[in-house]
Amino acid sequence: MSDFFQHFGQTVAFIAITAVVIGSALAATFAKSIVHASFALFFTLLGMAGYYFLLGADFLGITQVIIYVGGILVLLLFGVLLTSRSLDQLQIRSRASYIAASAVGLAVLAMLWKAIIRGPWQHVTPVVPQQTTQSLGRLLLTDYLLAFEFSSVTLLAALIGAAYIVRRREK
């Protein structure tokens, strides 16, 4: 009985999160103004964090909220506001290019749909992971140590490069 309720709760949560994510992603793609699109992206990213919690990846859910919602989205809004002088005459492309892009998107989606439906997925009974943070930390410092260090150097290089690109140039 409790198993049934757990499944039911998961299904309801999945449907609710999917409604939020797909709806706001549609808004982010088709909204006229770029500010509205950025705010729609906010709800998409929060919904993704909800999916991560639903999938048992609690560390990644928190990371998603901190980095995407707290960092990347704020950067994006900074970009929107700093360049807003040019935004009012720049709404969206012509309707025709939106229709063409949507046609390509639908074609890609149909292809992926076919692959997902036909795919020979092997259904393993999922083990419920307990301590994701501990296991992730152990893996990062053992099996994936080189990639971890390399990504930290990449992040440093990217931030220095970003500051260098937008520096004030002396005439």
Binding site: R93, Y98, V104, V108, L109
Partner: peptide, 21 residues
């Protein structure tokens, strides 16, 4: 869900004029 999000992102990349879009 991942496929739908990917398709929407692709449409957004192709159709928007601003670099932020």
């Amino acid at each position: 869900v991942g496929a739908v999000l990917f398709a929407l992102g692709l449409v957004c990349c192709m159709a928007r004029r601003t670099a932020i879009g």
